[in-house]
């Protein structure tokens, strides 16, 4: 029963079976949405959200914490359908859930594109200031979409070997010639921003700030050959070797940075756990949705 239920998430045996599944899935989804919309008020909707959140969290939590066996499903003793993964009775559902989430995620891309078109379409239609930027958005999106799909699905079969068909080379130009350099150039801007931000923000207001600055200078110098050159006269062994900038930099990173990082990560992890619990038990409801209900 369980396995046949999970079977609907596996590839269909034939094209007709796939079409039937698609029709049934769409009909079921529409019927469910209509029913929910028709019979659930705002209060009912909140209860439904709380229930789905709790059930989802419970499933994934139990799957993680229940004991596992490699060859059989714990605790039923049934054969494990995927012996490559240690499993309990809930494990076989993990992959279908992952697929379902991916499908839902794929639908939201459509919503995202709708949002973009809504904002930029209005800019163009009403000729708002900077509307040509919105026009550039439509141009860029259509070009990537058309040439990307074209190059993927309709490659030029007759193109001589070694030469890219023109639609693919256009896509290469858009991707490798425009998109990638833009990405690299934007990342490079960080060098300029960090220079101006460091100059502006680093002021010795207190003794602690002075210590912090000393540590920053050592680490910055240890990170480049000119820093290593500054103390190259010091011996590489013995007590004075500690004062070579690269050794001092490594010491700061290992002995001062590491405990600080661990401390923050501990705090953040426990904070994340508490937040997860609040979401799972719908205790955070008041902040996301109105307090009633």
């Amino acid at each position: 029963m369980w396995n046949s239920l999970l079977g609907i998430f596996h590839p269909a045996a034939s094209t007709s079976a796939l079409i039937w599944r698609l029709i049934l899935a769409v009909a079921f989804s529409i019927a469910l949405l209509v029913l929910l919309h028709r019979f659930l008020g705002p209060r009912g909707r909140r209860w439904l959200i709380a229930f789905v959140t709790f059930a989802g969290g419970l499933y994934l939590g139990l799957e993680y914490f229940l004991p596992v066996r490699g060859s059989v499903l714990w605790p039923t003793g049934m054969p494990n359908p995927n012996p490559d993964r240690a499993a309990n009775i809930l494990t076989p559902g993990i992959e279908p859930i992952g697929i379902m989430l991916s499908v839902v995620g794929a639908f939201t891309v459509g919503l995202g594109i709708y949002s973009l078109c809504q904002v930029h379409g209005r800019n163009v239609a009403q000729r708002r200031p900077g509307w040509h930027n919105s026009g550039a958005f439509f141009l860029a999106m259509s070009a990537m979409l058309v040439f990307g799909l074209w190059a993927h699905y309709l490659p030029d079969q007759d193109a001589p070997g070694g030469r890219l068909p023109w639609q693919e080379s256009t896509y290469e130009l858009l991707f490798g010639g425009i998109f990638m350099p833009l990405q690299a150039a934007t990342f490079s801007l960080l060098a300029f921003y960090i220079a101006s931000a460091a100059y502006r923000a680093f002021r010795i207001h207190t003794a602690e700030a002075a210590l912090m600055m000393a540590a920053a200078f050592i680490v910055m110098l240890a990170q480049v050959p000119v820093g290593q050159w500054l103390t190259h006269g010091l011996p590489t062994t013995g007590p004075l070797a500690f004062f070579r900038l690269e050794t001092l930099g490594d010491w700061i990173m290992s002995w001062l940075n590491t405990p600080a990082q661990r401390g923050i990560v501990f705090g953040v992890a426990v904070g994340g756990l508490a937040m997860s619990l609040r979401i799972w038990l719908s205790l955070e409801r008041g902040t996301f949705f109105s307090e009633q209900g």
Partner: peptide, 24 residues
């Protein structure tokens, strides 16, 4: 890249020192 990074770091250190001299 290393010579570039070396002197860029030196410039940032110099800028921070200049800013602090002004502050003090």
């Amino acid at each position: 890249i290393m010579p570039v990074q070396s002197w860029a770091h030196m410039l940032i250190i110099a800028l921070i020192i200049i800013g602090n001299l002004g502050y003090i």
